[in-house]
Design a protein around this nucleic acid. Structure first.
Lengths: 211, 211
DNA sequence: TAGATTGTTAATCGATTAACAATC
DNA sequence: TAGATTGTTAATCGATTAACAATC
């Protein structure tokens, strides 16, 4: 029951389960079996049961899973619904989009401050963009959980170092580099370039479909 | 030598190889061994050689790989450097960021048109945003390779259907749904919500590191 | 030639799927 | 109770790693 050695493959599927369960719940459906989940997610029923059983026995023989209950368990496992304090570094196109993207705020993610190298020119009436030089000091006096890196790649590792030094627990990285971090800081990267290249690979290799 | 049954795991690593090789090349380095690549990528030398050998024999015993040559081969395999015609649907925060993001244009990706439900209010002097109602007709008279979906989730599947019908070869999806597509259209999704949830999972499970 | 490093086969490891007893 | 569906073990499948002969 105590979770240990849970593979990355399993963990990456948890948010997907969560998402599908939320949409099932919105439809007012009360219970769901692994077989039904299998049909809508495209994963096997066996895998779904295996995955969930890494974390506990959430179902009931002959019945399936209570949707609301399972959402609750997954929320706890993933850590959705907690309050997270964010800082955003890099207020260019992507940084801007992430800052505006309200879905995350509704979930409890809150921006404490925004930093950029060109702070002056980016600030306006609605937002005070700070100079990235101030980041280190800011982290000394403010508890921050997650740093979002949306800088050019040249700056990314330096920013990551400051964030780690400043005690963040996680880094959400949008720059196209693999960051090195210290003392248990968690990295999650969104590599848009790699995603696009994967798409073009398949577009150029029609005979190679695995699906 | 003929590529077949190449697993998704292998394919997902190709853009990473490409990225690292580009940065090696920028440093003026001429040759690289799988052992050296192993050290900078964190993958095993054995895996790197395995992966590359799915596509051909690009190395030389006792020497390693010629950096420029290998970049050339990977470009061909991935399909980087070709011209791709894009349409963007959804000109909100994320759509806006993607449209502005110049890196892709430099690589040969070119926006043919941008669509949104609120086309009128989004157009300005620099960009003519079209009403999404016109998408279907546009695709009839313009060859488009890739459709980028950056709409709210409620609209995503409908847009995907129109894109498939209109003959695009690939869809780059940023909405938080898994799209169903027909006749060999390739889907690549960037699920920001899942990425963020994966991050928070690990932040809440410090004892569970696999790395 | 000697040293280095590939390409490739074999061994290991891990993840997925199948099967079924337990039980609601 | 009978039917359904879980939790869990065992079997299969696939991916990664190790090893080494081939060869530059």
């Amino acid at each position: 029951m105590a979770k240990q050695n849970i593979s990355l493959s399993v963990i990456k599927r948890l948010p997907k389960y969560y998402r599908y369960l939320e949409s099932i719940n919105e439809k007012g459906i009360i219970r769901v079996s692994s077989k039904e989940l299998s049909e809508i997610t495209g994963l096997t029923a066996s895998q779904i049961r295996q995955d969930l059983n890494h974390f506990g026995c959430f179902g009931q023989q002959g019945y399936g899973y209570n949707v609301k209950e399972l959402i609750g368990e997954l929320s706890k496992i993933i850590g959705v619904g907690k309050d997270y304090k964010l800082v955003l570094i890099g207020y260019g196109n992507i940084g801007h989009a992430l800052y505006q993207y309200m879905s995350f705020r509704d979930l409890g993610y809150e921006f404490e401050a925004v930093f950029d190298k060109e702070a002056k020119s980016l600030s306006d009436g609605n937002l005070d963009v700070r100079d990235v030089e101030e980041l280190s000091d800011f982290l000394k006096t403010n508890k921050v959980d997650i740093g979002i890196i949306a800088t050019p790649k040249q700056a990314a590792q330096d920013v990551a170092d400051i964030l780690c030094e400043g005690g963040v627990k996680g880094i959400w990285n949008f720059s196209p580099v693999d960051l090195k971090v210290s003392n248990g800081v968690v990295i999650e990267s969104v590599h848009l370039d790699e995603s696009l290249f994967t798409l073009t690979y398949f577009m150029n290799s029609p005979e190679d479909f695995i699906f």
